[in-house]
Design a protein around this nucleic acid. Structure first.
Length: 255
DNA sequence: ATGGCTTATTGTATAAGA
């Protein structure tokens, strides 16, 4: 089974790219972030024609997450329980015997800003909730735009980025705290090309110069680790006209 | 150089992203 995550930076603008990508890659499950639309605008019908059912939670202008699946989605959870949040960043559901959690982590703007502290609070709430989710659903995947580059090798220029948001020590510690729940960075279970990234700035020819960060991830629980067959980043959609600044990250499971 | 692009908004500039 092929699972993917992709921050589309407006599903309205990127629907064509998404439909083409689904046709060419035939994933079973795709998690989307930054749909940037209310549920009434979500293209359920177009996705149905492409062979996918979908669950979504969105809002105008910002945020918004969705799970697309070729198989039925059940036990759907929208947002983190007991965490009061106007921003629509989390959706989860069961697909087969796998719990799929799709998340758009806060950006954090700048270290020590209000948004940064919101990001750290949000990370604490997510981690606490996932601990209970893992107890309930040992086979769990956490897919999304984490807005955290976990290690220096996930950053094109660690010196220039030193201490900045997305790589700051507190954010990286929060990522490690997620791993401590019994999760694994599926991308690093396999040999990877050097300088592998999932996001490149639109400015300064970021993609052409490979000035990127690896901030989109798929974490797998202990119970699924042995089923991981392959993990990779598909840079092709980033080469299209009017691309998202993120590109899809994929995990293949044996089951 | 706190910029460079891109997106959405009851817009004609601003906010936010990363």
């Amino acid at each position: 089974m092929k699972f993917a995550t992709w921050n589309v930076n407006s599903l309205n603008v990127r629907l064509g790219h998404l439909i083409d990508w689904l046709r060419d890659n035939q994933p079973e499950v795709v998690c989307l972030q930054e749909t940037k639309q209310e549920d009434s605008k979500f293209p359920y019908d177009v996705l149905k024609e492409a062979g996918y059912e979908a669950v979504h939670i969105g809002q105008k202008t910002y945020n918004g997450v969705a799970i697309l699946s070729r198989h039925p989605i059940s036990n759907i959870q929208r947002n983190i329980p007991d965490f009061d949040d106007a921003q629509q960043r989390v959706i989860a559901g069961n697909i087969g015997d796998v719990r799929v959690v799709c998340a758009y982590f806060p950006n954090g703007q700048a270290v020590d800003s209000d948004k940064y502290h919101y990001k750290l609070r949000w990370l604490l709430a997510l981690t606490a909730w996932l601990k209970t989710q893992l107890a309930e659903h040992p086979k769990l995947l956490l897919l999304g735009d984490y807005n955290i580059a976990p290690e220096d090798l996930d950053c094109h220029d660690p010196t220039a980025w030193l201490g900045q948001v997305l790589v700051s020590p507190a954010e990286r510690q929060a990522f490690k705290d997620l791993l401590s729940l019994g999760l694994h960075d599926s991308f690093r279970l396999f040999e990877q090309p050097e300088k592998s990234y999932s996001w490149w700035d639109y400015r300064m020819l970021g993609f052409r110069r490979n000035f990127g960060l690896r901030i989109d991830h798929i974490l797998v629980s202990d119970a699924l680790k042995a089923d991981c067959k392959a993990a990779y980043i598909d840079k092709n959609p980033r080469k299209l006209e009017r691309p998202s600044d993120h590109t899809p990250v994929i995990l293949e499971l044996a089951t």
